[in-house]
Design a protein around this nucleic acid. Structure first.
Lengths: 314, 314
DNA sequence: CTGAAAGCGCTAACAA
DNA sequence: TTGTTAGCGCTTTCAG
């Protein structure tokens, strides 16, 4: 029995001829190792948990793919669960994952409150924050510099002469505030007055975006440019402009965020801030494997962003 | 110990006062049940496996959400794995899931070969085919009637007077052939000659679509309508038409497939065949729970489809 | 290099 | 209503 365990796990202390015999028996009997029993005995499940807001969102789906590919590479399975950004659900999901004895957890895109921190630190299971950072900077995380990304986008527009730049975002008073900070900072750097009417908090979907953008365009001193929380909102903005009989980018310029597939499927094609979504997932998973194996590693990884210039800006 | 097990599992044969004591001890000690041990003892893991082509595709991501919501409702966790439609990988993933002792498996969107069938039937773990059917009709499945859906779309276009209808699809000689059959049948029903030049097999992505559609439009007897494998391809077709200086729907009409978010984010908005994606996922998962509990049930479920008429058709 | 034995943390009879 | 006991199918010492 122990010998079978050895050959199944690739232990070298087995005489080649015995190994062959065991392998044959496994084949003949159609034996399939029971990973649950193995997990109980070894205290490793080779399964990690992923908590994300919504798998049906293009952004998180792409991130999940990055996670999955690396997980597969290191032989981990993934238990996926959507939290809808609901704190109670997040906590409940985490507890559930811990009961299942996952070897590690990837926590995506939620706000990290003090309650989260405590829970995260109360367990010895490694947890990495993906695309969201611990305000206290103590928990491992992988992300881009959101504030800088936002700053860069606004600066890009300012340098084109814009002074009335609308910012269409979501859940302003959460961890997304960093984007807002970048927006405000950029205006300040260039001595452009801040106008709160130009900042709108909406649901991050097309329908809400087109409506809100249309409203803003009707202002007497309407914005001449839009910067948005994601590409879907940006497309809404583009269409709102076009519905108004105006042209993008000639009359109004638009900059999106994320560089999802959407951004190339609209006319004019969208200029957008590139977040390396797949890579964020992949790097997070890689970091988690290191944490699981107690390897030495940086625990706060900031990936680069850039602006992909397409046709929605001049 | 047994009593603790009883209260944790909600067994009623426990004196209320004892229950209270146990609960308090659990609280005080921060006890967290070990689901792996439970799984080994009870032979149930409350985990199901999902094999799908690619989680980063909007279609499957939405389907996954449907699955997940119902899974959560019935207290199951989901192990997700992407197969890239690669048969070897599918089989390997399935074996892996079976090792992990999942209580059931959802198999999405792949072709079901004889090899699959054998593997599926060699295990007692229930498996349901989602959005793809067993040619032999023996395995449980949830899907729409693809052939009829395709037929309906083509008939819809024929009735508008089209006789040259291009069909932009993918992996023609696979289970997607049903759509092709529907296309051919509809033409036949209305005595319209079949022209193989109008059927194109492409990668199901925007870039490939726009290129292929542009080519077709340059034919001397170019198509006057496009029917596509999915919405992304349809958007490519729309843009190809517009690039040619033609108008949708005035000069060329376009019908997509799936009714993903994409379809409302393009101008003109896309007329498309509605596949109830989320519901397919949800119903599949519900069916799986019934199978797991040996409940009486239909095992071949065909969900309704319809055509959502928007602006890309007259 | 191989086998024997203990034990991972539960559930499920069964007895009390 | 509660406690005792025997596994579930592995891994991991430890002897040999």
């Amino acid at each position: 029995m122990a010998t079978v365990s050895r050959v199944v796990n690739g232990n070298t202390n087995v005489k080649p001829s015995t190994r062959k015999k065991v392998l044959k028996a496994i084949e003949d009997l159609g034996y399939r190792p029971n990973a649950v029993a193995r997990g109980l005995a070894s205290k490793k499940t080779t399964t990690i948990g992923v908590i994300l807001p919504d798998i049906s969102s293009l952004f998180f789906a792409e991130l999940a793919r990055g996670i999955e590919d690396i997980a597969t590479m290191y032989n981990y399975d993934i238990i996926l669960s959507s939290s809808d950004q609901n704190r109670d659900k997040e906590i409940q999901l985490l507890n559930n994952l811990l009961e299942k004895q996952v070897d590690g957890v990837l926590f995506l895109g939620g706000e990290v409150t003090e309650e989260h921190r405590q829970l995260f630190e109360s367990t010895s299971v490694p947890i990495v924050l993906v695309s969201s950072a611990d305000p206290q900077k103590k928990l491992p995380s992988v992300r881009i510099d959101m504030e800088k990304a936002s700053y860069d986008a606004i600066e890009f527009l300012i340098k084109k002469g814009h002074r009335r730049i609308a910012f269409l975002t979501t859940r302003l008073r959460s961890h997304f505030q960093q984007r807002y900070n970048g927006y405000v900072q950029a205006l300040k750097s260039y001595d452009i007055p801040f106008d709160e009417d130009l900042v709108a908090e909406i649901q991050p979907v097309y329908e809400a975006a087109i409506k809100k953008a249309a409203n803003l365009l009707k202002l007497s001193n309407a914005p001449t440019a839009f910067f948005t929380y994601n590409d879907e909102i940006a497309i809404g903005a583009i269409h709102a402009v076009q519905d108004q009989g105006l042209r993008v980018p000639d009359d109004v310029e638009v900059v999106g965020f994320n560089n999802t597939r959407f951004s190339q499927m609209v006319r004019p094609m969208l200029t957008t801030v590139v977040q390396p979504i797949y890579d964020i997932g992949a790097v997070s998973m890689r970091l988690l494997t290191k944490l699981i194996n107690n390897e030495e590693t940086h625990t706060e990884i900031v990936l680069p962003h850039r602006i992909e210039i397409r046709q929605s800006t001049r």
